[in-house]
Amino acid sequence: MKELRKYSLLGIILLLWSACSEKKVEQTIKSTPAEASEQPIALVIHGGAGTIKRENMSAEREKAYREKLKEALNAGYADLESGEPALEAVMAAIKVMEDSPLFNAGKGAVFTHDGRNEMDAAIMDGRTRNAGAVAGITTVKNPITAAYEVMVNSPHVFMVGKGAEQFAAEQQLEIVDPEYFRDERRYKQLMRIIDAEKTQLDHSSLKEMELEDPYFNDRKYGTVGAVAVDKEGNVAAATSTGGMTNKRYGRVGDVPVIGAGTYADNATCAVSATGHGEFFIRNVVAHEIASIMRYSGKSVSDAADKVVMKQLVEMEGSGGVIAVDKNGRIAMPFNSAGMYRGYIKEKGKPNTFIYDDEDEGL
C-alpha cells in the first residue's frame, strides 16, 4: 500500500512538471513574435558640413533648416514604420532635401565655373551590397532616383553625364529643363567666388562676405545624405550633391564613389559622408569605417570617430559622416564647425542639430 502511494505521488509530481513545462513552452511561443518585432528601426540624415556658426545664421534661416530636416526625417521614418525597406526610407528622406533650395543637392545645387548645375548621387543596399551611382547629370529632377535605377535596372554601378541622363529617361524618371535647378542665391555665390579669385580680399571684405553668405567658406562642401536600418535589420545608405561651387574640368567628388562617400553592409554599417570630397576619396572614408568595425570589432561610433576625428584631421580634411548599424546604433561625427544633421528612432520624435555644441543624446 505504501508502495502504491509512493508511485501515485511520483505520478502527480510528473504530471505537474509536465504541465509547467508545457506552459513555459506556450509562453515562449507566444513571446517569439513580440521579440521579433523589437528589431530597432532608425534613420539618420545630414545636409552638409562646413563653417556653420550661430553668428552667421539668422533665426529665420535656422528655423527653415530645422523644419526641412524634420520633414525629411518624418518622410523616411514613415516608410520604415510601415515596413518598407531601408532603401525606400533613405530615398524618401533624400528627395525631400533634393527638392529644397536650402541644400546643395537637386534644386539647391551649386554652380560650376561655367554656370551649370551638375549633380552626383549614389545609393547602396547593405543586404546585397548592390549599389548604383551617377555623376555629372543635369536634367534628372531627383538624382537619387537615377542612382537607384542604375542599381536595380542595369548590370552597372556607375554612369555619368549624357549616358546617365539617357538611361534615366528610359527608366521614365522625371526629366526637367536644367533651368529648374537655377537658384539665384547660388548663382550670386558663384559670381562672388569668381570675383574673389580675381582680387586679393582684405580681412574686412572677407568677413563681410562670410556674414552675408554663410556658404562662402564652404564652397568645397555641401551634400545631403541618409542612412537607415529597417524592420528586417537591413541597412542602406544614400547620398546626393551638387558638388563643389566653381568646380571645373568635370570634377567629381566622393559622393558617387562607392566606399568613399557612400557605403552599406549589413555586417557592419551604412555610411554617408559630407565634406571636402578629395580627402574622403583618398581615405576611402565610408569603407574605412566599415573595415574598422569588421576587423577591429569597434562600435560604429568608435570607428566613425577614428576616421573623421583622427585620420581626416591628420590630412587636414574637413567634414563629417552619418552612420548606423543593424542594431540601430548611430554616429554623427564631424570635424568642421557645424553639420546639418538629425536622427529619428521613434514616430513623432525627430531630432535635429546644426552646431557643434548641441547635445545629441546619443
Score class of each variant (00 low, 15 high):
residue 6 K to W: 04
residue 12 I to M: 15
residue 15 L to S: 14
residue 16 L to R: 01
residue 16 L to P: 00
residue 29 I to L: 06
residue 40 P to M: 09
residue 43 L to K: 07
residue 46 H to F: 12
residue 55 E to K: 04
residue 63 K to S: 06
residue 64 A to P: 00
residue 67 E to L: 02
residue 70 K to D: 09
residue 77 Y to Q: 12
residue 77 Y to F: 10
residue 78 A to F: 02
residue 82 S to C: 09
residue 87 L to R: 09
residue 88 E to C: 12
residue 92 A to W: 15
residue 93 A to S: 03
residue 98 E to H: 08
residue 106 G to D: 01
residue 107 K to M: 08
residue 115 G to C: 09
residue 118 E to H: 09
residue 120 D to G: 03
residue 121 A to S: 05
residue 121 A to K: 04
residue 126 G to Y: 03
residue 138 T to P: 03
residue 140 V to R: 06
residue 141 K to D: 04
residue 144 I to Q: 11
residue 145 T to Q: 13
residue 147 A to R: 01
residue 149 E to C: 10
residue 150 V to R: 08
residue 159 M to G: 06
residue 160 V to T: 05
residue 163 G to K: 13
residue 164 A to K: 04
residue 167 F to V: 08
residue 169 A to V: 15
residue 173 L to E: 10
residue 182 R to D: 14
residue 190 L to M: 13
residue 191 M to V: 06
residue 194 I to R: 14
residue 195 D to G: 13
residue 197 E to C: 15
residue 204 S to M: 14
residue 206 L to Y: 07
residue 209 M to R: 05
residue 220 K to H: 12
residue 230 D to E: 07
residue 247 K to N: 12
residue 258 I to P: 08
residue 260 A to W: 01
residue 261 G to D: 06
residue 273 A to F: 04
residue 273 A to G: 13
residue 274 T to D: 07
residue 278 E to R: 10
residue 283 N to T: 01
residue 284 V to R: 02
residue 285 V to N: 01
residue 291 S to Y: 01
residue 294 R to W: 09
residue 300 V to R: 06
residue 308 V to T: 08
residue 312 L to N: 00
residue 323 A to H: 09
residue 324 V to G: 13
residue 326 K to A: 13
residue 330 I to M: 04
residue 347 K to P: 10
residue 354 I to N: 02
residue 356 D to P: 11
residue 359 D to C: 14
residue 360 E to L: 08
